[in-house]
Design a protein around this nucleic acid. Structure first.
Lengths: 189, 189
DNA sequence: GCAGAAGCGGAACTACGCTTCCGCTCAGTT
DNA sequence: AACTGAGCGGAAGCGTAGTTCCGCTTCTGC
């Protein structure tokens, strides 16, 4: 691969990541190319479509989540480990509205190409949650299946009600209360 | 107003409501007109733009929420009253993805034209929440300001993870736990 | 330094969906 | 029954944004 071609590819990934993060999925291809000081032809030689580019950006961001889960899993205190993934997940999505949308499930993103990363992350989270439940620091009926909905819930505040004051952290606190409250069998509802 | 014109307007509102509900904000104007057995010209004579039509549909749906809040407020038990608005809000949005999106805050919906309805609803909810807090059935630090984020959170599950099994109700249960748990001053975090 | 292939730029093409426009029709009136 | 303008249909216009294409440029190996 020619050196200038490699440099251009880097630049494109860079610009795309920054622009998607700042303004969401609907920045224009032309704008990304311009930001990278590159022609549209070059952009399309590297990524067959906007969708492909977007998936690649999301895949790279996902690597950060895997890393996060890994670090969280190595925390001894089960309650702290859970908080670490839960809060860390949201913090990594903060300041990146395209990633938020992808994680929420909108954007028609087909996850092929990110499946592998997703599974790796999920497995670690599952273990962290199960450990928390066994240790009695998370409500007894909590399962891994609840995780997507819960983070998605808090993230929706981040996505739909963006505010300089991090309103989502208040929402997060409320939700964490629910998860860290032991609920005796059949007490609720 | 000519009788056929009135009938056409009814038909249009009908078709638009149904199609938006089923497939979200991006059904085409042409399709709405066709569904109502009416030409595009007629559609545009009644609603100056797609946005206008959408706002009108949302406004009508909002009337149902006001009604809901009114009924909830007349419930004696403060806990039951709160559950009624909270759950009712979500149930009214179920099966209507356009309304969900509007309530979430996406869809670039400008709320002018619905402001009035919105304020009416908000006022009632505020009273219900304050009553619940005073009665000690809702956590002490809960305020009306938390409401939008909380319902938005559960609704995001409804919107982004549609499933025939109402997964959002599980999410709802978890969140309600948090709200109905009295949190002593400074106990959390 | 040169050949030529790999890479580049960006004008043009295309698809899609909202909106406009205008000649015709028909409900309501006399 | 005749009249007439409010109302109608849907073809055409327009803007936007993704994608293609091809003549030109530039890097690299000899």
């Amino acid at each position: 691969m020619r050196s200038d071609a490699r440099r251009n590819r880097e630049r494109l990934l860079d610009s795309a990541a920054r622009l998607f993060a700042a303004r969401g999925r609907d920045v224009q291809m032309e704008e990304i190319a311009a930001d990278a000081n590159v022609g549209l032809g070059t952009l399309y030689r590297n990524f067959a479509s906007k969708q492909d580019l977007f998936v690649e950006i999301v895949r790279r961001r996902y690597l950060g989540l895997i890393d996060l889960a890994e670090r969280a899993e190595s925390i001894d205190d089960p309650a702290a480990a859970f908080r670490a993934v839960f809060v860390g997940y949201l913090e990594q999505a903060e300041c990146d509205s395209a990633f938020q949308l992808a994680l929420l499930g909108g954007s028609d993103l087909r996850w092929e190409g990110v499946e592998e990363q997703k599974a790796l992350f999920a497995e670690r989270v599952r273990r962290i949650i199960e450990r928390g439940v066994r240790a009695g620091v998370l409500r007894g009926d909590l399962t891994f299946g609840d995780f997507p909905a819960l983070v998605c819930g808090v993230m929706s505040t981040m996505y739909f009600k963006p505010s300089p004051t991090s309103d989502w952290r208040r929402h997060l606190d409320l939700v964490l209360t629910a998860l860290e409250t032991a609920v005796p069998q059949g007490a609720e509802r």
